[in-house]
Design a protein around this nucleic acid. Structure first.
Lengths: 178, 178
DNA sequence: CATGCTATTATCATGCATGATAATAGATGC
DNA sequence: GCATCTATTATCATGCATGATAATAGCATG
């Protein structure tokens, strides 16, 4: 249903563990072959998130794998009728630090808008705007405090054309940005 | 010609720079959106090799990209008639610290054998053996000093069946392994 | 029961990526 | 000319991944 679900996003941890078990190797065995430590490998297989590609490459070698690190430009689909979940799903990736729920769109619209405006693509913004509705969306934009200078400046013009006054005065990079 | 060349192995640095230029963004702009520093991003785009996936994910977000880190089990083709280059190409990935040349197979057979036996797959070993020839291959194996205990033990049996005496006595993990 | 493997986790020291800053140089525009 | 952006690189302090080690527990085998 979602066209962006083509890529099987399997965590690095799962891949490492699965491959090691497929080969029937122990932690220490793989660690030795990779030139790393069993402690590190165990951490890698259990909820670790900050990997070093240097270590990943050594592990790939030990596991007889090809390691591919690929950046794929995101093509966000233009959903005409966004349901709450249809809006949350494509935007979820922007909220890496805190999971985005459907309720957040109504409970913390400003927080969501700030994130989407600054980190999202144009389709992301369109999707969020379509979901929140023009008024609520622009109101949240006007209340946004944490936009980048360029983003803020752009939306100032939009808000001005819409006759909405900004809650925040955008000037230069100050404490909230540095 | 090589069936494993399906994956366009583009360096992380190239991908980052290409994508940033495609979007027409400056270093500091991307760095700010990603929540990292321009210095780091510049290093990332210029010959850096030890990336943190944590930073890569933030950059992917700033560049509106999907980041995929995939381990693909390596299927080494069984080449029936290995030419020098046909042997070197598949084995080159095992020599990440020092590039493998065709001459190395004759000049430093022990070094090559050690590496392939310990880090290579079964097809890798078969390929190297087919290229070096059974005699030269086993001779190099017998002279190998740096094999892992399990690998060494396995080849001890093979060499014994072949009537070849080992140059190295394999015992326990000592200085050369710890 | 003991023995030896396994994996997980905690602790600590160390090496390295990162962030901050500044210096340099190139490009562009006034 | 100057001013301002850009990117690169150097330096330094700091945060964090890593390696080493040990402690714990599970699980098999004798």
């Amino acid at each position: 249903m979602h066209d962006n679900s083509m890529s099987d996003v399997v965590s690095v941890s799962e891949q490492l563990k699965q491959r090691r078990l497929d080969l029937g190797l122990s932690l220490s065995e793989v660690a030795r072959r990779a030139g790393t430590s069993a402690a590190t490998l165990s951490r890698y297989e259990n909820g670790w998130t900050r990997f070093e590609t240097y270590t990943l490459r050594k592990l790939a070698l030990a596991l007889n794998c090809e390691l591919e690190i690929k950046f794929s430009p995101k093509i966000t689909s233009n959903t005409p009728i966004p349901t709450p979940q249809d809006a949350v799903d494509p935007l979820a990736r922007l909220f890496w630090d805190h999971p985005l729920t459907a309720d957040d769109l109504e409970t913390y619209p400003i927080w969501v808008v700030e994130r989407v405006l600054d980190f999202g693509s144009l389709p992301d913004v369109a999707l969020l705007r379509a979901r929140m509705g023009p008024q609520a969306f622009l109101k949240a934009v006007a209340a946004a405090q944490r936009l980048s200078p360029k983003t803020a400046n752009f939306w100032q013009h939009i808000l001005k054309m819409e006759g909405i006054r900004c809650t925040k005065k955008y000037s230069r990079n100050t404490a909230w940005n540095s």
